[in-house]
Design a protein around this nucleic acid. Structure first.
Lengths: 167, 167
DNA sequence: TATTGTTATACTCTATAACTATA
DNA sequence: TATAGTTATAGAGTATAACAATA
């Protein structure tokens, strides 16, 4: 049996399962709150939060997608919903007419502000409250390493589009 | 501002974001593999794996659901798909006529065996390869603590059904 | 020719409520 | 009256492919 596919030992399994269960429970709790408090899905919240975090409150569609959504049409769909609710606005980019700049509206920023305290409370209750100060730093460090490793591996954003040669 | 909703410091944010990004990337990669290699969703794989792991290869619907699925109808739907493909079989429980025992068929066990090596390879490549031996143990330990804490908090399985009083 | 984004479409999945049957 | 599971149905989300416009 090859090294890559040899069974996992108890420690490896434990780390994998614990990671998946913790993140799944946390995500579920967070989604429940966001839906109840702001009528937002987690993806929608991530998009708004990313915009709120950006220096100008605006990003190109492609940059907004990165890591949050795995297909272009998926982002267009979500952006359409947020746009209809007046939480974002879209306009062609000045420098590149193909691109669309997405901006957080005042209403969008207000909704993020409205939802954030409860969001934080959920994260605290489920995740942070059970961590000693030292454990938090350790978790942060180890997961940060893993993240960097993952980011270095595959293509990051949406898959490159299949080239359109005749078939 | 209350203690529960005070902003998170950099370390707390870092741990939260790293956890969500790592688990999201890992889950996406794993789902891609399972779909390609066994035409299974992650939920379906979890259900089969849980059955394969159980002592008799069979579980009641309710016990099978726990932690994997958040609604009863969702499990019935997935079980229906797996049943149609001949990967599981369902029969009324001997001791309680209300319950349904779900059993892994030979084909189901074979599919798990077929898919597992690739599954492990993905987990290794994305998660385990970047962890020193010591880090693995630490991650396992910390996340285990968090998981126990989470499990102690909310109701575990599907929400208790609303009681059917007149309204 | 490659890139950015949208649209049409089909499909998967999930949740709620109503329902049946058993304890 | 509570529990186990199914069904009907409706809605949300996703992905693929074809498309238009710009670089």
């Amino acid at each position: 049996m090859s090294r890559e596919t040899a069974p996992l030992d108890a420690g490896q399994l434990g780390a994998y399962f614990a990671l998946m269960e913790v993140s799944s429970l946390l995500q579920h709790a967070v989604e429940e709150h966001l839906r109840a408090d702001g009528d937002l899905s987690y993806v929608q919240f991530q998009l708004l939060a990313r915009l709120a975090d950006s220096p100008e409150g605006r990003l190109r569609m492609t940059d907004l997608a990165d890591g949050v959504v795995y297909s272009r049409s998926g982002l267009t769909y979500q952006a359409g919903l947020l746009d209809r609710r007046g939480l974002i606005s879209r306009a062609p980019a000045a420098d590149d007419e193909r691109s669309v700049m997405v901006s957080l509206t005042d209403a969008g920023r207000a909704l993020v502000a409205q939802v954030l305290p409860g969001h934080i409370a959920v994260v605290r209750r489920l995740l942070l409250d059970s961590l000693e100060k030292g454990d938090l730093a350790i978790l942060s460090g180890v997961l940060g390493t893993v993240r960097d490793h993952m980011r270095a591996l595959p293509p990051r954003s949406a898959k490159p589009r299949a080239s359109r040669r005749s078939r």
